[in-house]
């Protein structure tokens, strides 16, 4: 209510006590000015929403050091060599340092990144505090066994081309929720081109509906 009043008051002050509604009808110059103002405001808000908002929403963090996935896949042959299952069917996720040491007890190459790894972590027997791009919220249960073994899916369907990467991209975290940007996806509107572009509940449900004719019950993915 008060807002409307205020608007009216302002406009009547500016335009010599003529109401806003009447003013638009009265003069072409006023209309033109209004259109320009509208377009200008639209552009400002659109651009800030498109460009500035994501910057404000996400903060960036660097990984402890770069990891060359492409090189490792070439050397090891496949993803499963490092990202494996335990005997009870649970998934190991990112390997712990014990597995890396099998090769990297000493520096094998001459990259700066490997040097950091060997000197700071291997020699100190310290786990690497990796930031996990695909880390789901605490309330989510995800079974790699069901998807990889049960449904024969490949890693790429959800994780995309990470196996091709030569450096580690910055880890972006949502300042409000604390979740990785890879969950919502790079596109701020949530539009996706590939199956791996985002990892939200709707993305899971979409595939489940297609493949199993049911989105599944809540507990299938929540804990």
């Amino acid at each position: 209510m008060s807002e409307i009043e205020e608007k009216i008051e302002n406009s009547s002050v500016n335009d010599d006590k003529v109401g806003l509604a009447q003013e638009n009808i009265k003069g072409d110059s006023g209309l033109g000015l209004g259109v320009i103002f509208f377009i200008l405001a639209f552009v400002v808000f659109f651009l800030s929403g498109w460009l500035l908002f994501p910057k404000l929403l996400y903060s960036k963090k660097q990984q402890p050091f770069n990891f060359n996935h492409r090189l490792h896949v070439q050397e090891m042959g496949d993803c499963e060599s490092c990202h494996s299952f335990r005997e009870d069917g649970s998934f190991t996720g990112i390997p712990q340092i014990g597995m890396c040491v099998e090769c990297h007890e000493e520096q094998l190459g001459d990259t700066k990144d490997e040097e950091i790894f060997v000197t700071q972590y291997v020699e100190n027997e310290k786990e690497v505090p990796w930031l996990i791009y695909s880390r789901q919220p605490d309330c989510v249960f995800f079974s790699h066994a069901a998807h990889v073994i049960g449904a024969n899916m490949d890693c790429k369907t959800c994780h995309g081309d990470i196996g091709e990467s030569t450096i580690s991209k910055p880890y972006e975290v949502n300042r409000i929720t604390g979740y990785s940007r890879d969950i919502w996806g790079k596109n701020i509107w949530g539009i996706k081109k590939h199956s791996w572009d985002s990892m939200k509940m709707d993305d899971c449900a979409e595939c489940h509906l297609k493949e199993t004719q049911s989105k599944g019950a809540c507990f299938q993915c929540h804990k």
């Binding site: 299952f85 005997e87 009870d88 069917g89 649970s90 605490d138 249960f141 079974s143 073994i149 804990k223």
Partner: peptide, 30 residues
Amino acid sequence: DVSPRMRGVVEKCSFCFHRYQAAKDTAYFE
């Protein structure tokens, strides 16, 4: 395996559903 709850929500017994999930993982693996 069980997410802790926050203030202001309802909770109840789940028949230890996370144990069912773990058992299924093993079954898939084998």
